[in-house]
Design a protein around this nucleic acid. Structure first.
Lengths: 348, 348
DNA sequence: CTGAAAGCGCTTACAG
DNA sequence: CTGAAAGCGCTTACAG
């Protein structure tokens, strides 16, 4: 295609390319006022009073010119940016990181901040680069998040800015961290079963060491205690925290002499495996056995047969609470635990 | 707690608060050179040659002072930012958006750009605000993405910057868009079955109008044709594109007189429903029937019993290709189709 | 090979 | 109520 063959394309490109970059100064000229005045009206600065007439004049100049303030110049002049950094370790594998981002963004925007997110896939190199990038953008602070609740070694660079840990916590525990309340979650899960009258309740736990593993067990035990049910170690199984693990544990569970009437699964994926085992035996929840999961991983929990009653991991809240903690600088240290809400569907 | 009660906390706070904001000028002073020289060495500007001695001096001053360039000042001075905007409509529900983000980020970083992502949950208000924010940050361009392949109405503001559509396309189709190749994907899925010798192959399609619905059907038909198998409309069922829909369609499918030996499901979720139906009849894949899914939604496909053979939606590639198209400005218009790769597991 | 100076597009005392 | 001017922290011709 020869030059000028397609005028339409050319002009479209030009429209984008030579975009005149209208500045505040242009607006001032057009409105016949000073730059300061324009700045005052577009930010309607408290304290200064502008005549209705000039305000109108400025506003229409802004509109006519299609003026967009330059955020970078603004930030520079003000001496600080409106950025909050968010580093995530696994944005591509589960919706969890997305939920954290979503919560963080909503809360950040509410305060006039915009999120600078970086996915590191747990790669230390990428992590370092991401933090450096954020520091160079002079972020107000950084949220360091993980996709599952765990302890994390904090990169040194992180300490160059205010930061809060989200869904993880430091080795020494003297940083501010926002995490799910695993104990309360485990308690809530067991309690659902208890309230339906079940007394022989199994817990298919994870076999991996993690705060969720110990926390949910603790919650399960305290719920039993509250209902006067003796804790029976034979009823807590351990298995890999996925569908296969759930299926395997189910075989074991369904073979024990005195059958349980309810089971709390460490997560929804294990519950999915359990459902498979049940179905192979012609059994179904809650008719033959009541089951409660954990995580509220929608694609699973919302669509199992029957839909799974579960306890939700509060990722959205974790993100939102993270920026709140960052902005308010409260607490000054220590961890805040966010409640895991119950989601009743039809399996219990 | 009275003032000064906890010196440790105070100093930690101070370290962060009164951070001296070391600037390039400070580095220049410390190194005994001009600001220009510092700028040249830290960016090792091509064309200028600096004495090894001064370079060393500058570098050590940078290190000693813990200098971090101010990206905003840099961008301002250079007349353009290193931002690329990415608006996503559903970051919190599936990992799909996360995969797009991940691909876009990796490609962007490769070229020295950083992503400014905004989640809008499809809310037009949020969308407008997000685009305005990006425009004010003078982004190099914007990627407008959707979590499932569909047509989209492009917000006007988007046209104020170069943009590319990711996983969606405009009504008129004269914008640049990057989408999955549904036809090729449907073809690949059917072909897996065909190559295993199956000839009576059902297609459990979605009952929603969408490019995937028509595209995959077209691909399925062309694969059949290629293998000399007559197309039998009775073998393509339509149902809701989720587990329940798959389960329902399966009942229908398993009731037809002359049984099929293979089935291609519109997505992994439907395959999951199909598996449930199979299991209730004591049947299993691939022993009794071979099944192929679509999407490669890991949490499902990777953990069904047996693991599901499927065709992957190339979200990561979509994101990467999106920034490539944005940066290279090629094509100038029209849609680029990205291949959907086959993922062989054990169900077919 | 290196420095002095203008400029990027804003904001913000300070005057008037 | 509004304007002139300095300053934010860089980059980049232009000199030397």
């Amino acid at each position: 295609m020869t030059e000028g063959a397609d005028p339409e394309v050319q002009s479209a490109a030009a429209a984008v390319t030579k975009r005149p970059r209208v500045t505040l100064a242009d607006v001032a000229t057009k409105a016949g006022v000073s730059a300061a005045t324009v700045s005052f009206v577009i930010n309607d600065k408290p304290g200064v009073t502008i005549t209705e007439a000039t305000r109108k004049r400025v506003l229409r100049a802004v509109r006519d010119l299609g003026y967009r303030p330059n955020a970078m110049a603004k930030n520079l002049a003000q001496g600080h940016s409106r950025f909050i950094g968010l580093v995530a370790d696994a944005i591509a594998t589960t919706p969890f990181a997305g939920q954290i981002i979503s919560g963080a963004q909503d809360e950040a925007w509410k305060h006039g901040y915009v999120l600078l997110v970086a996915n590191t896939e747990g790669n230390p190199e990428a992590e370092k680069e991401a933090i450096a990038m954020m520091l160079e953008h002079k972020v107000r602070g950084i949220l360091y998040s993980t996709w599952f609740h765990r302890s994390a070694e904090i990169p040194d660079a992180l300490r160059e800015a205010p930061f809060v840990l989200v869904n993880c916590f430091g080795e020494q525990g003297d940083d501010v961290a926002v995490v799910p309340d695993e104990v309360q979650g485990g308690y809530a899960a067991a309690r659902i079963l208890l309230e339906k009258g079940h007394r022989r309740i199994a817990f298919i736990n994870s076999d991996l060491p993690a705060p969720a593993t110990t926390g949910r067990l603790e919650g399960y035990r305290s719920a039993l205690a509250e209902f006067g049910v003796a804790y029976d170690p034979a009823l807590v199984l351990r298995s890999a925290p996925d569908q296969e693990g759930g299926y395997l544990a189910a075989q074991e569970l369904l073979a024990i002499e005195q059958p349980v009437s309810g089971v709390f699964c460490y997560n929804d994926r294990m519950a999915m495996g359990l459902f498979d085992a049940l179905r192979e035996r012609g059994m179904t929840a809650p008719r033959d056995i009541a089951v409660v999961g954990f995580d509220n991983q929608e694609v699973i929990a919302g669509h199992l047969r029957p839909p799974l009653t579960t306890v939700a991991l509060p990722h959205y809240e974790l993100g939102a609470e993270g920026v709140r903690a960052l902005l308010n600088r409260t607490p000054a240290r220590g961890v805040v635990r966010v409640e895991c809400p119950t989601v009743e569907r039809q399996s219990a």
